[in-house]
Amino acid sequence: MKVVFDFGGVVFRWHPASFLARVWPHRIETLEQGAQAAALFFQNYGGDWGLFDQGLIGADEVVRRIAVRTGWPRGEVETVVRAVPDELMPIPATVVLIRDLQAAGHTLHFLSNMPEPYADHLSSSYPLSEWFVSGLFSGRVKQIKPNAEIFAMAERQFDAAPQDLLFLDDHPVNVEAALARDWQACVFTDAASARRELVSRRLLSA
């Protein structure tokens, strides 16, 4: 089986509400306020941020657009955009899961919506080539989940039939898109529940 990992919220820490609360303590006092600000800032990874994810605009342009759209000071918006790489730290339990899947003989790949600057940071900071045989970053291939084309690109890149791929992603819409292409897929909530799912599918031993 070829197991395909999403990155943000799966392999790397990504919780926008608490992230914004840390970066903007003067503006955000509660996680509820953080969630509201995140919805406006990231637009559910569509809009301006979706174009950034897809590699169609750069960091300076996404900062400009968000500042214009929201009225937040450009310097504050830039602080958030610059702080994202430090937020993307490996989740230890997922790293253990990756190692266990490798030990069980499975081939691992990744499929991540990630702007090019952040993809470059992850590639240079962490042993992606040790964890994964290959992978696709949206910002590099100019396609984005949940669009069908990036899943088709992944099938070619991973040299796999859809039914031979199992996808772990924390966004249900991306999981639904994978299932629509006849991938196996499940929503990732945490490494422990993912491990139970993999055991139930007989990909890992209990």
Score class of each variant (00 low, 15 high):
43 Q>I: 01
12 F>N: 15
113 N>L: 08
9 G>T: 13
86 D>P: 00
163 Q>W: 02
26 H>K: 15
76 E>F: 09
129 S>A: 07
122 L>Y: 09
129 S>T: 05
143 Q>M: 05
110 F>V: 02
90 P>R: 14
96 V>K: 09
185 A>F: 05
36 Q>S: 10
169 D>R: 15
104 A>Q: 04
139 G>F: 02
20 L>C: 14
136 L>T: 00
114 M>Y: 07
31 L>A: 13
34 G>V: 06
161 A>Q: 14
156 R>H: 09
183 W>L: 03
169 D>I: 08
47 G>N: 09
48 D>P: 13
49 W>H: 03
147 N>Y: 02
41 F>A: 11
84 V>Y: 00
146 P>F: 09
200 S>I: 13
31 L>D: 03
39 A>F: 08
160 A>I: 06
188 F>C: 01
105 G>R: 08
107 T>L: 01
187 V>D: 01
153 M>Y: 12
69 R>N: 09
70 T>M: 04
172 P>F: 14
143 Q>A: 07
164 D>W: 04
52 F>I: 08
10 V>K: 07
12 F>M: 10
50 G>F: 07
81 V>G: 12
2 K>R: 09
122 L>R: 14
125 S>D: 11
57 I>E: 08
4 V>P: 07
105 G>S: 10
110 F>L: 07
139 G>K: 01
35 A>Q: 14
12 F>Q: 06
186 C>R: 08
13 R>E: 12
20 L>W: 13
198 L>M: 07
146 P>W: 14
76 E>I: 02
99 R>P: 12
121 H>I: 00
162 P>L: 12
110 F>R: 04
60 D>E: 14
198 L>R: 03
7 F>G: 05
78 E>I: 14
65 R>Y: 04
173 V>Y: 15
142 K>E: 12
156 R>Y: 09
62 V>N: 00
5 F>S: 01
71 G>A: 04
103 A>Y: 01
10 V>I: 05
145 K>V: 00
18 S>I: 04
177 A>V: 08
69 R>S: 04
166 L>K: 10
63 V>Y: 09
81 V>R: 13
167 F>R: 01
37 A>P: 14
67 A>Q: 06
19 F>N: 05
72 W>H: 10
129 S>L: 05
150 I>L: 04
185 A>I: 11
138 S>L: 13
90 P>V: 08
82 R>D: 11
16 P>W: 15
147 N>T: 00
202 R>T: 06
2 K>T: 07
193 S>H: 04
130 E>F: 05
75 G>K: 08
182 D>P: 02
16 P>G: 14
75 G>I: 03
185 A>M: 10
146 P>N: 15
64 R>V: 10
144 I>D: 11
50 G>A: 05
44 N>L: 11
137 F>P: 11
204 L>W: 03
75 G>N: 13
85 P>S: 05
193 S>D: 00
19 F>T: 10
10 V>T: 04
59 A>C: 10
133 V>Y: 11
36 Q>Y: 12
106 H>F: 12
41 F>I: 08
177 A>P: 10
165 L>I: 02
85 P>C: 07
179 L>G: 04
